[in-house]
Write a protein that binds this DNA or RNA. Structure first.
Lengths: 246, 246
DNA sequence: AAAGACAGAATGTTAGGACAAAGTCTTGAC
DNA sequence: GTCAAGACTTTGTCCTAACATTCTGTCTTT
């Protein structure tokens, strides 16, 4: 297969050079322009071809190694990994994920109130028990099929959304629009039997298996922004993770 | 809190300098020697203190930023993140995870045979249907409590373990001992009701919720090394993931 | 013919310097 | 007193350069 990687960089662009190269490489792999096992030219040669220094070229490659798309071996070279490539578990909202995969997401707001934080919520958010928090409960649907029950608690001053705003998009979009940058999130993924309420909302029976996810998200200031306790219909949703040995 | 970070490097060690520094920083954070919100000295000053160049110091810090332990902001500095720090989902075996957390892992071998690959297994391993594979089924216990049912398929020539070897440790250890380096793995995490057999093994009832994980692992050669289909008792096990916005 | 020595090729680590961009704080003008 | 301009601090990007380490294949020797 006459594979030939053609990369370019635009030095007038404000986008970092290593980032430009990484995205093009990623695109070439995702589109199948280069197939699994394809061996890249060595770093120095690639850098020369693009008029870059080796560290910059190396950084671009490293990005994709970290993502699990390329494999490097000392003394040998760099190859495109074998096996299917799929979308990563990223810091995106379920809403955006669904739209990205061609489904039609929608939201039903079940609860949108302010209340004092319970001990559990206060602990997760790192605030005092009883402090006011925004409590949201939403039912997320994909193509009008119930997919997940989303329960979230946010410190009082992060956002004050109307029901309409909640129905029009994802929670993270609202947080970003409010000028808060979500930097890091910790998730715990598990399973349990559905409660009566969850079963009713998801169209299942009580104690049928549901996939659960608890998440605490932090802003770049280090402050906790959101605690979420979600449960998903397992036939319709699963999490994917790629692990790379460094 | 009289916090003072004391780092050292050993230039005679074959361990890379950035790695030495990263591990010490990680240790200091994990042990609580520096508390959340602690502001590190700037990169140049830290590099000077250790007699390192700025790129090396920067790389050490980057490692921890990627792990979600530190947060950097341009013009401001680098801080230890708020919130609890817990063990990462890494490319380690369940066996090692359990031992690391102070529990006593054990294994009961249910099946250890060679058989022709089914279509599903062949597809996951990237081999031809009907090609010989090693098929393992194990029950993993923690402190004599059943924890997970582990089903694995490996290409025929990777390992040939005895039941005793399987009972003495994790699968990945055997693969490593055979000289194969596991480089990357893709995992899909979901949930479903337990089958009759799983329920019996795990001490649950049929259709009780179990947490499931399907994994395909690849060697650094790009060849698939293992396909696993595991299910866990959800009260006893969950997956943790840290997501970092870059 | 097989085993070991050696050279070549590729990535891994480290150094040191320069400038850019973003956030914070001080200073000065109104 | 308030607001804006500018100085300063700190991380972000990029460069050149050198040497180390590991793997592969070849060539020599036995």
């Amino acid at each position: 297969m006459g594979e030939q990687l053609r990369l370019t960089v635009d030095r007038r662009s404000p986008v970092p050079l290593y980032y430009q190269v990484a995205r093009q490489l990623e695109q070439a792999i995702a589109s199948g322009e280069v197939s699994p096992g394809f061996k890249l030219d060595n770093e120095i040669s690639l850098a020369d071809q693009l008029g870059l220094s080796r560290p910059t070229m190396r950084r671009a490659i490293q990005e994709l190694v970290d993502k699990g798309l390329l494999v490097r071996k000392r003394g040998v070279g760099t190859q495109v990994v074998h096996g299917r490539v799929h979308r990563e578990l990223e810091l995106t909202s379920l809403y955006d994920d669904l739209r990205g995969s061609g489904q039609q997401p929608s939201t039903r707001v079940l609860l949108n109130v302010r209340e004092p934080a319970t001990a559990e919520v206060a602990d997760e958010l790192g605030i005092a028990e009883g402090e006011e928090v925004l409590h949201l409960e939403r039912l997320r649907l994909a193509d009008d099929e119930p997919l997940a029950v989303l329960r979230n608690w946010l410190p009082a001053n992060v956002i004050s959304p109307t029901d309409e705003e909640l129905e029009g998009g994802g929670l993270y979009q609202l947080v970003r629009d409010a000028g808060t940058h979500v930097q890091i999130a910790r998730q715990r993924i598990g399973a349990r039997g559905a409660t009566t309420q969850e079963a009713r909302l998801l169209g299942r029976r009580k104690n049928d298996a549901v996939l659960t996810m608890q998440r605490t998200a932090y802003a770049d200031s280090g402050r906790a922004i959101e605690y979420g306790d979600h449960c998903y219909r397992p036939e319709a949703y699963s999490f994917e993770v790629t692990l790379v040995e460094r």
